[in-house]
Design a protein around this nucleic acid. Structure first.
Lengths: 209, 209, 209, 209
DNA sequence: GACTAATCGAGACGGTACGTCGGGTCTTACG
DNA sequence: CGTAAGACCCGACGTACCGTCTCGATTAGTC
């Protein structure tokens, strides 16, 4: 992770407690589960972490930044093991992503920081760095694998390829988030299969299934 | 609209000012544009609307409810004129939806209330009624039209049909929101065309384009 | 008293609670007794008074102003009944003054606000208005009575007279305060008599007593 | 001085910097002048003195103790040269005392620590030792001289004598402080002469002047 | 000349209070 | 009744100092 305010601390003086960071992020997630974003207070987080409020403010600029870091850690576990086919890989990553979104600390925190990021460019950059871009590699891996398998044609134009990667990423991430948080319907294997089929074959083919 | 606290008004006494409602909602949108969700205060909205805080609280239960109503009005304009083909219809609705999302009052307000709705079922229901479901009919219209045109096969199982409608809706709305708010990239005609092609033909076909 | 921030409140709106003022001042005195000036916190005073902190800040600008008002009320009881002779009158007022200073809420508060007033002209003015000048009349009364009795010669120059009044006041008030708070020795009838004798007859005569 | 925390320093180890003490006391006085007692912070004093906070706390227990020592040095210069008569001596000491009180570091600091000493016996003892008693000798000297000159009768009862010394001291110090800090009027030679006359001859005689 | 032990600077730490702000409620007088 | 005005209680905010602590780096005097 190593985001935060990030002054590298020159020399001299008592070093920052390494355990405090972990305690604070854990406390933040716990508070998100119990209270949700809007009722979460930094004073409460500090208390839960057994830390003074000042310690917290020394490391994070505010609620937004703290929650981004706390939530970001949840997404570190995302992997995309080779399931043998592009469809299976998509289903797998969708289900993994959904499993994270199903956790209350993610539910409560993620949308809120995204909402805040609308008016705060620094926050949006932090979200992209800490959370979003980290997942984009999964799309790249999946496409590369599918090309090796012959499921997808090889790429020619690298710029076009990047655009496609971004599009696919927006579709997958956006759809899963919308399903899970806006529609508030479960992302189960059935749904994941239907979605993967739609994504691979398109509306025309999919609707006949 | 018919939202609000909605006590049916018994008898006698001075009736509620009709103009106040409009003034408050307009003031709310103006405040959203200037300040964003998190810095918007009900006291400020009341002042802008030339209204006492009391009047505001008599009509809405809180910030969330007020903003939902204020934002919902923005989505009333969504239409899906027949553009002659399914692809064109999709592109059209995507661009319309994105145009609304580009307005700062929508950006600021929509995501925030959705974030709040994660822990507030009543709020989620209100959002569904006021905003989400209102857009889902566009999907229904579009599919029906495409079936008439023969671009899509007719539906057989009504339950399956509903599931598909929901899925398509999640894909379109989710993807556009993610592109616009998370990736923070423009939703322009080029992108809309690429997205429509992906949605209709699927990854396999699309990637060859 | 009617000091405070003193905006006369035009019309409309809920009027300020009259009982709150009294409760706050009483709570302030209680806190002074228990905690003393330096450990007195406005939050604690508010709690004791059963009042929100904001209510307190709406009426007083800070700790200093509040304590001045709280202490000032203690000095309202000062009187100078005619004891038949100038010496007896002096002794009487000295003992009364000392009795007030002996109360812990006065001890704790008075010197502190005087100390603060060194760098705050508005505060000094408030102290003079609320506490100091109110007692100067006692000197005037006492002198007038003594002149009627023939103990003091009648005044001729009014300006000189005012200077003398101020001097006498500084001597009495300053000496009693110094004895009580700096020397921290009791102001008992014996001491009061010795002081009155010194004040009336001067060092030369007094020392022979 | 010999105040401070005064651990007698066992053996070995680096000795305490001697210059640090002086730098800290000077910085304290400078801070008193600029900020006054209540806005003076120990962190700021340490910075001004070019010293770590630790160093400061190793030598003084807190703000009060530090300021007492810093202010006490100001009173070292008080002398009472023989001016030839009791009245002249009184005027002289009054003016000297007032000159010290006119310095902002004394004004700000002295009253504040006295206020604090109301609830802190150790602090009061420290003030007595470092400041008050040091001045009381001036009264003793002055009386002795006046007795030699025949202006005052010789003392008989030593206990009575001590009481009188205390009384005179309270009168002089208290009156000057009250004039200077509470009444906030200048202590000029005219006022000093009027005060000395009152003190020597008493009210009855003085008023006729 | 290395050892030893207390000092020094720097600055993070757990606390407590600050004074302000916003949320919602309530109490007035007026319409 | 509804309304504007504004005071009320509450709770969180982010900041400032407090006095303590933990660092690595100096210094003496003692071995």
């Amino acid at each position: 992770m190593q985001s935060r305010t990030s002054a590298p601390r020159a020399t001299g003086g008592r070093p920052r407690s390494a355990t405090a960071d972990a305690a604070i992020l854990a406390a933040t997630r716990a508070a998100l589960v119990e209270l949700g974003w809007s009722k979460l207070t930094l004073g409460d987080v500090a208390t839960r972490a057994g830390v003074a409020k000042t310690t917290l403010y020394r490391r994070w600029a505010g609620k937004n930044e703290l929650v981004v870091d706390a939530v970001a850690e949840l997404f570190d576990e995302l992997e995309i093991p080779d399931r043998g086919s592009l469809a299976a890989d998509v289903e797998g990553v969708v289900l993994q992503f959904a499993a994270i979104l199903a956790r209350p600390e993610a539910k409560s925190g993620l949308m809120a920081v995204i909402a805040e990021s609308v008016r705060d460019d620094a926050l949006r950059a932090r979200i992209r760095t800490s959370i979003v871009d980290r997942q984009k590699r999964l799309v790249l891996e999946g496409r590369a694998r599918a090309q090796v398998r012959g499921e997808l044609p090889p790429e020619t134009d690298p710029e076009e390829s990047a655009r496609t990667t971004d599009l696919i990423f927006d579709v997958i991430a956006g759809t899963v988030v919308h399903r899970a948080l806006v529609s508030a319907e479960p992302v189960d294997p059935d749904w994941a299969r239907a979605f993967a089929k739609l994504l691979l074959n398109g509306l025309t083919a999919s609707a006949t299934a």
